[in-house]
Design a protein around this nucleic acid. Structure first.
Lengths: 199, 199
DNA sequence: GGGAAATTTGGTAGTGACTACCATATGGCT
DNA sequence: AGCCATATGGTAGTCACTACCAAATTTCCC
């Protein structure tokens, strides 16, 4: 790896960090990309080469956490699906726990700004699709049915992650995210969750 | 109801319809709000009084369908939760089947434009919250746990709706959306869905 | 019907995100 | 050193969206 990529990664981080700082201090809507570029000491056009939209500056960390977990799920085709999906959940939470303040700030910004919220939801949706794509390769039988099953499974998995994280970030402290996730899985297994019934 | 509100509703529909037409013909990104305003024979500032963003022009119909179903769920506190949730799903699908072309076009536009997709996902998320809020009022016990349970249940319910609709709009024709939903519910009940296991 | 009050409308001027493009500077390799 | 690829900064422009104002329209009350 050359000096070039090192520098590239450095400026990337610098921009994202400065942006985050400004967002937290003055709010998403009250921070302009010019201000961010100035704070990172780069031109606005350089900033746009690294981040296609203002929203991606907020979501990069969460994006990375999810990407890592889904990728590692794809790399482990041996395990049982239910174990694999639990592992995905645990890995995401593990990654997020790496930087709790950042995660809290992301959800905070999403709560206050509709566009950020929208792009966060889209990010989650995209990873649901990625996970479904990984799942469908391990399902046999009718491919149409398999795709449907995979989408539903991936949706429920991401649903657990999302709700656990939302509870986790809203709670002052001292809540173990992975324990919360296990509770959610248990609720699902026990049939303690009100679910639409086919009659 | 006065003449005023009638006229208001008329212009609202006119704007939304013209916008939709232009979006379908030339794409979301290639249509400017000025063009929409001109087509509806109103000033741009009038358009913005009815629709806060360009994206809401696309999503209004789906929004209305979901709003109706969730509202009616709230109005029927008597039934069993599993029946109530099934009814929500069926009502949404029923409403969407009112205008299949429109729904197909909405998901088409969302597929081609990231911002539309993001706002569609946010819309779905907002109704998940609304449904969860309705649910939590019918759950007893620890309120923190109830909120968690409600969020998970609402999430799974909306997940079924979303996936059924996505399959439905992608299929050329002749698929009964409500039957598809019953299949999804059956898969969930039978344990035929790979789900994360708590071990 | 007439006239005041409230509401709706169209227009203007602006901000700020984002794009396309170009000239320059910088790092990587022989 | 010198050449090539890439990274950078700047300019000009488009377009979504906001704040504001003056004119038109509807409603209400007499």
């Amino acid at each position: 790896m050359g000096l070039r990529e090192v520098k590239r990664e450095r400026t990337r981080r610098l921009i994202a960090d400065k942006a985050f700082e400004l967002f937290c201090d003055h709010g998403f809507g009250r921070t302009t990309v010019e201000q961010i570029a100035a704070a990172a000491e780069v031109g606005p056009s350089t900033l746009y080469r690294y981040f296609p939209t203002k929203e991606t500056l907020v979501l990069e960390f969460v994006d990375d956490c999810l990407a890592d977990a889904v990728r590692r799920f794809g790399d482990q085709p041996a395990v049982e699906l239910s174990d694999g999906l639990r592992t995905v959940i645990e890995r995401v939470l593990e990654q997020l726990e790496t930087n709790p303040d950042r995660v809290r700030a992301v959800f905070d910004l999403a709560e206050r700004n509709e566009s950020v919220s929208a792009h966060l939801n889209e990010l989650i949706w995209r990873f649901r699709n990625d996970l479904a794509a990984q799942l469908v390769r391990r399902l046999s039988g009718d491919p149409v049915r398999a795709e449907f099953v995979a989408a539903l499974s991936a949706g429920i998995t991401m649903n657990i992650i999302e709700n656990v994280v939302r509870v986790w970030v809203d709670t002052p402290d001292a809540v173990d995210a992975r324990q919360l996730a296990r509770q959610a899985m248990a609720l699902l297994e026990n049939g303690s969750l009100p679910l639409p019934g086919s009659r």
